[in-house]
């Protein structure tokens, strides 16, 4: 009947609104997730190069290495002697470039890697500072600036993500509250009578909570399908972009259901505060 049709139209509009909002969230999450993957990759490839003084004798090398192992987070220390350093360069630029050299001008060095838990900029920076202070070490080199930038981007991304998640949850709740208020008004005569007959708020709000949860859940699923669709549609042009892992998608649906249910209940409460519309004036 008329009222039924209007109610389904209302739910349809709410689902549409929430789907679009969730779609935006997924697009952002995708960007953030890939940024994270890239930064992780970069972090793993980062090494600290410690160049040694010319005066360092072979006997001191061991001592320097054992000092390096004492730095927290160090997972790999590799010694590169002068010859090895030169051969690496030769390989890169060709033998000819180095033909005129009488002696090897390159210093010996250490290549140090940190473990998984120490790949943040501060840790690498701190480790580099330690290494600098070891006697026999002349110079330390690491991708510090680059790392600092990546860390900053990830941190800003996280902040934006948290804010966006909060805003989007709010927006979804607002849409669902609005829809459930309207559903409430449509039903307020009936709800008012049931209240008069002794129905609890729990009983009265149940259908609205369920509708809200459905709106939230269905919208997030639609948004996921939509984003997978567009992701596959874009195909090769974004072939090195990774899609969100299933756990995140499931979390999104759960998130949608929870906030949808909350919106349904809030709509009930605010509808109720403004009163049931069963009083009619007869004077």
């Amino acid at each position: 009947m008329g009222i039924e049709r209007k109610t389904s139209g209302l739910i349809f509009r709410a689902v549409l609104g929430c789907s679009l909002i969730y779609f935006l969230l997924i697009v952002f999450a995708l960007v953030y997730y890939n940024l994270h993957l890239i930064s992780d990759d970069l972090r793993h490839s980062i090494t600290i190069q410690a160049y040694l003084e010319k005066s360092v004798q072979n006997a001191d090398v061991q001592k320097i290495e054992s000092e390096m192992w004492r730095i927290p987070g160090v997972s790999e220390v590799r010694f590169i002697n002068k010859e090895e350093a030169l051969s690496v360069l030769k390989e890169a630029f060709g033998e000819k470039v180095f033909e005129g050299l009488k002696s090897n001008p390159l210093p010996a060095s250490f290549e140090i890697k940190l473990d998984r838990n120490h790949l943040g900029w501060e840790n690498i920076h701190r480790a580099a500072e330690y290494i600098k202070r070891i006697s026999g070490v002349k110079e330390v080199d690491y991708g510090g600036d680059l790392l600092k930038k990546i860390d900053k981007i990830v941190r800003v991304g996280t902040l934006v993500g948290v804010v966006l998640l909060a805003l989007i949850s709010l927006a979804v709740v607002a849409v669902v509250i609005n829809a459930s208020q309207l559903l409430y008004y449509k039903d307020s005569f009936k709800l008012g009578i049931m209240e008069m007959l002794g129905a609890t708020d729990f009983y009265l709000s149940g259908p609205l909570i369920i509708k809200g949860a459905l709106i939230g859940g269905v919208s997030s699923i639609i948004a996921i399908i939509l984003s997978i669709g567009s992701f596959m549609g874009l195909g090769k042009s974004i072939s090195d972009v990774e899609f969100l892992p299933p756990q995140i998608l499931i979390l999104l649906v759960v998130w949608g259901v929870i906030w949808g249910a909350f919106g349904g209940y809030s709509g009930f409460r605010s509808g109720k505060r403004s009163g049931f519309h069963i009083e009619s004036k007869h004077d």
Partner: peptide, 23 residues
């Protein structure tokens, strides 16, 4: 004065509603 019955429900269901809301 205005009865406050639910139009979409039968007489039986209107009366039964008073017990149904008690769960």
């Amino acid at each position: 004065q205005d009865f406050r019955l639910i139009d979409e429900m039968t007489v039986f269901d209107n009366v039964a509603l008073a017990l149904k809301v008690r769960e």
